[in-house]
Design a protein around this nucleic acid. Structure first.
Lengths: 135, 135
DNA sequence: TCCTTACATAAGCGGATGCTTATATTTAAC
DNA sequence: GTTAAATATAAGCATCCGCTTATGTAAGGA
C-alpha cells in the first residue's frame, strides 16, 4: 500500500477520487444526477444491468457519503440520497489545473456552453504568459 | 475520434477515474502540471517525500498512460512524460454534469480561492491575467 | 566491446477492496 | 405487540492492486 502522500499536497477532499475510482459508484452518481432518490430505487436501477446485492450498494453509498459526494436524508423508513456538491466540486477543482486554456478544440466550447459560463473575457492569453508559473 | 458523449454507460475514457484513484498517481500528475519531465525526475521528486522504488513509479506511469492521462516521448535514453489533455478532459467532462448551475458565481469564487489565488477582495484591477499558480 | 545510465518488465507477496450471506435496526402497518 | 419493509452493519472470503526485488532492454560513452 502506498504511503499516502499526506494531506495537503494531495489536495481534494479526502477520498473523493478514491470513491470515484469505482464504476458502480460512478453509476450511482449518474443515477443521482437526475435528482434525489431512495436507496431502494438505486439498488433496483443497478440490478437492471448487473447482479449486485442490496448490501453492496449500501456499502458503496457509504463510501460516497464519506467522500462528501452524496448526502442522505431520512424520510420514514427511506433514505433519500442526493449528490453533494462539496465532493464533486472538490474533484472538479483539482482537475481544473489541467485545463487547457488555449488551443482547445470544439470540446472546450461545448463544455463552456454547458456550464453556462458567462465569461466575457475575449482576449486570448498573452503568448509569453503561458500558464505554469513555477515561481 | 469524436468527443466522448455524456450518455456513455460507464462514462469517461477507459480507466481514467480508476487511474486518478491513487494518490501517488495524482501526485505524478501534479508534478507534470508544471510541464514535461523525464521519468527519473519524477522518481526523484516522489522520493523526496515518500519511500518508493523506481519500478513502482514506472508502473504508475504506465497506468496513467493507459488511461490517456499522460503521454510519453523518447529522447535518447530518457522518457519524457507530459500531461495528456485527452484524459483530464474526459474526467472534467464527466464531472461537468454535477456542476451547480445556480451557485455558479460562488462556485467560481471557491475555485479561485482553492487554487490559492490571492485575489484582492476590494476592487481589483481588471483580471486580464490568467489565473494559474501553484502546481 | 564493455560498462553505465535510464527505464521497463517479471515474479511474488501482503494488504486493501468489493462481494456475498446473515443479522441488526428502524419505521410503518396490522 | 407482531410482522413486514427498507436499509445498515457484521463477518468472511476471493480478488485486485500496489509494492518490492530481480532482471531485461536500449542508448550513450569509454
Amino acid at each position: 500500500m502506498a504511503a499516502s502522500v499526506a494531506g495537503s499536497p494531495d489536495s481534494a477532499r479526502e477520498g473523493v477520487f478514491e470513491a470515484l475510482g469505482d464504476p458502480v459508484r460512478r453509476r450511482l452518481l449518474e443515477l443521482l444526477a437526475g435528482g434525489e432518490q431512495p436507496a431502494g430505487a438505486l439498488v433496483a436501477a443497478l440490478q437492471e444491468r448487473v447482479r449486485i446485492s442490496q448490501p453492496a450498494v449500501s456499502q458503496h453509498l457509504r463510501v460516497l457519503r464519506d467522500a462528501g459526494l452524496v448526502r442522505v436524508r431520512a424520510e420514514g423508513t427511506r433514505r433519500l440520497y442526493a449528490v453533494d456538491d462539496a465532493g464533486t466540486a472538490a474533484a472538479r477543482e483539482w482537475l481544473a489545473r489541467f485545463e487547457d486554456t488555449f488551443a482547445q478544440p470544439l470540446d472546450a466550447l461545448a463544455t463552456e456552453l454547458a456550464r453556462g459560463r458567462r465569461e466575457r473575457r475575449r482576449r486570448t492569453s498573452p503568448p509569453g504568459e503561458s500558464a505554469r508559473g513555477t515561481g
